[in-house]
Design a protein around this nucleic acid. Structure first.
Lengths: 341, 341
DNA sequence: TATTGTCGTGTAAACGTTTACACGGAGCTG
DNA sequence: CAGCTCCGTGTAAACGTTTACACGACAATA
C-alpha cells in the first residue's frame, strides 16, 4: 500500500512527529535521525500526501487565475509570467477561463470556497456591481488586473493605458508629422479602452490639434469591428491620414479594410495599434503599436499576490493599504506609419 | 469565525453526519431536515472546506496539464479545450508549463505526489527514458498527447501527422501541379516532425516523384530555423517550386527568407505549413497549411482522462486496454501556393 | 549539589469532512 | 404479537499530517 509517515516512523523506530519534523527540515532533529529518516523515505519512495498537508495547513498553494473570454493575444504570456513567479515561490496555478459553461462570477465563487486557492488574480473587462459583490464575499487576497484609477479598495496591477495611448499619438504627430489622426475605440464599458481614448484626446489637445468627432469611431477590440470601423473612416469625405486603433486586433481589421479599398499602408494611410500581440510582428508591413509587457504584468501581479498571501491575516484585516501598480509601455516603431510632410 | 458543518449541526439540532448528508444530497435524509439545513447553510454563508473534503475523499478534482516550452501557437486553444470538458465534469485544471525553473520531469514529479492532481495530460516533444521512468512512478492516470505509434503502453491522443502531411503534399502535387517540392523538417527527435516527414515522402513516392535529398533540410520548428533553411533552399542551383514547412512557424521563416531574396509568394515559390496557428490567417498571402483542431485535441484528451479517473482502480491494475486516438486533419487552402503549369 | 537551560523526542490533539455501522421506531407480514 | 424491513438519524472512526506541549537527559551555571 501507499507508504505514510506512520510507516516511516515504524521502520525508523521514532515517533511520527519526528518523521514529520525531519521531512520538513526542522533544525530541532538530530542530524543522524534526520538522515536515517530521509534515506528511508527515498528508499521506500515515500510521497507526502499533499491533501493531508494542505488540510492541516489550511493552504492549497495554488494561485487562481480568472480570465475573460477574449484574451487570445494575452493568454499565453500572461500565464507564463504568473507561472514563473508562482513556481519560484512554490505555488501552482489554476486557470478558470470564461466560456459558455462558466462566467467570471462563477469562477470567483468556485475559487472562494475555502481552500481551493490561496489567492486570485482577476482579469475582467469591467468591474460590475455583481462582480464586486462576489469579491466582497471572498476571504482570500485578490489582485485585479486593471489600469483603472477608481478601484481604490482593491490591489491592482495594470498597464498605463493613458500614457501608452498618449505616447503613440504624440509619436504620430511629432515624429511622423500626421495631423489628421482618427481613433477606433474599444468596447464602451471597457476601462482600458476608455483610458486609451483619453490618452489619444489629450495628446491631440496638447499638440494643439482639432478633435474631429467624425474621426472617432466605435470598435469592440475585434478584427471584424476594426474592419467595419475602418471602412467607415475610409468612406468619409475628409479622410484621416492615420488611424490609431485601440488594440492590435482592431488594427488587423484596418489592414483588411485598407486592402479591400485597394489602398496601401503606410503610403495612403498610417495604422497604429496597441498591445503588440504576438501576431503583430508578422503583419506586413510590421505594425507600429504600443508594446505591452504582458509577461511583466503577470509576474508583477503574481509577486503582489504572493506577498499578500504571506501577509495573511494582517492584510485581510485591512490594516495594510492597497497597492496600485502601473506598468508603463513603449512605442514599437513598425512600418505601418511613415513620415508625412 | 468560519462556519463549519459542526456549527450547522448545532443550530439545526442534528448530528454532523446528517448535515453532511444533507449537503451532499443524500436521498436518505428527510426532506424537511434537508431544507432546514440548506436554508441555514445559505443563511450563514457556509462554504465547505474543500481541503478537508478532498483529504477524506482522496481526490483533488484537478487535472494537471504538463506542457513543453515551445507551444505558443497551441497553448490557448489546447487549454481551452481541456478546460471546457474539465469544467463540465467538475474538474479544475492546473498548468505546469516548462520554463527555466522547471523541466517536464519536475512537473511530473510535482504532480505525482499523492493528491496534487487526479490525472495528467502530458504534451512532450518526445518520450525519453527518464520521462518514462518518471511516468512509471506515477500512480494516477496519464494521457499523452502524441500521434506516435510506438507508445502501446500509454493512453494517447494525437494528431494524425502522417495523414496530414500526406494530404497536403498530395494536394500540392495533384491540385497545384508542383513537381519539385522541398521539405523543411522539425527537430530530429520530435515524433510529430518525423511523422510529417514520412507523410511527405510517401506522398512523393505514391505520385511517382523523385525524392531529392538536397531538398530536405533540417529545421527546428522555429521562425529562425525556417528562415535559414529556406535561404539554403533558395540558394540551390536547382531550386524547388514549392516548400512544405513542417510547421507554421517554419513557414513564417520562409516568408521572411523569400522576401529577403526579393522573390514573391506564390509566384516564385509556393509555401505550405502545418498547424494552422492563429497567426497564419493574418499572413499575406494567407498561408496554405494543415488545420490541426487543437481545441478538439484538448477536449478529446480531457474526456479520455476523466474517464480513466472514473475507472480508478480497475484501470490502474491494467485490466483495461490502453486507447490510442488519432484526430485527423484537413488542408486549409490559402494563397501561398498557386497552380503551376 | 541544586537550578536552569537546551536539545531531541514523544504524546496527543486538532483540522473538517465522509461514511460504515448501529440503533430506534414505524409499518408491514404472517 | 413476534419478527422483519425500511427509514432517518446518530455515533464514532478514519483520513495523514502538523504542532503545542510535555518530558527526560544532559550540560552549564551558580
Amino acid at each position: 500500500m501507499t507508504v505514510t509517515i506512520k510507516e516511516l516512523a515504524g521502520r525508523a523506530k521514532v515517533s511520527i512527529a519526528t518523521v514529520s519534523r525531519a521531512l520538513n527540515n526542522d533544525p530541532k532533529v538530530k542530524p543522524e535521525t534526520r538522515d536515517l529518516i530521509l534515506s528511508l523515505a527515498s528508499q521506500l519512495e515515500y510521497k507526502p500526501n499533499i491533501l493531508a498537508r494542505n488540510f492541516v495547513k489550511k493552504k492549497s498553494n495554488i494561485i487562481g487565475i480568472v480570465l475573460p473570454e477574449a484574451v487570445d493575444g494575452f493568454f499565453t504570456e500572461f500565464i507564463r509570467g504568473i507561472g514563473e513567479v508562482a513556481c519560484a515561490s512554490g505555488y501552482n496555478t489554476m486557470i478558470a477561463d470564461t466560456h459558455k459553461e462558466r462566467t467570471i462570477i462563477e469562477s470567483i465563487n468556485n475559487f472562494s470556497a475555502r481552500g481551493v486557492v490561496d489567492g486570485i488574480i482577476l482579469m475582467a473587462p469591467s468591474l460590475t456591481d455583481r462582480l464586486k459583490n462576489a469579491l466582497s464575499r471572498c476571504e482570500i487576497p485578490v489582485v485585479i488586473i486593471s489600469g483603472s484609477n477608481d478601484l481604490e479598495e482593491y490591489d491592482t496591477v495594470g498597464i498605463d493605458n493613458f500614457q501608452g495611448a498618449y505616447s503613440i499619438t504624440d509619436y504620430l504627430i511629432k515624429s511622423m508629422g500626421y495631423k489628421k489622426i482618427a481613433h477606433i475605440t474599444g468596447p464602451a464599458l471597457n476601462a482600458d479602452a476608455l483610458d486609451r481614448k483619453a490618452g489619444y484626446l489629450k495628446a491631440l489637445q496638447d499638440n494643439g490639434l482639432f478633435v474631429c468627432e467624425d474621426w472617432i469611431i466605435d470598435g469592440d477590440f475585434t478584427v471584424k469591428g476594426g474592419q467595419n470601423a475602418c471602412l467607415r473612416l475610409l468612406s468619409l469625405p475628409e479622410k484621416p491620414e492615420a488611424i490609431f486603433a485601440s488594440n492590435d486586433m482592431t488594427a488587423i481589421g484596418c489592414y483588411k479594410a485598407v486592402e479591400s479599398f485597394g489602398l496601401k499602408i503606410p503610403d495612403d494611410v498610417g495604422i497604429a495599434g496597441y498591445d503588440d500581440v504576438f501576431v503583430s510582428q508578422f503583419l506586413t508591413p510590421r505594425l507600429t503599436t504600443v508594446h505591452v509587457p504582458i509577461q511583466e504584468l503577470g509576474r508583477t501581479s503574481a509577486i503582489l499576490l504572493t506577498q499578500r498571501i504571506k501577509e495573511g491575516k494582517k492584510f485581510q484585516e485591512g490594516i495594510l493599504k492597497r497597492k496600485h501598480i502601473k506598468i508603463s509601455t513603449g512605442v514599437v516603431v513598425g512600418k505601418s506609419c511613415k513620415f508625412h510632410d
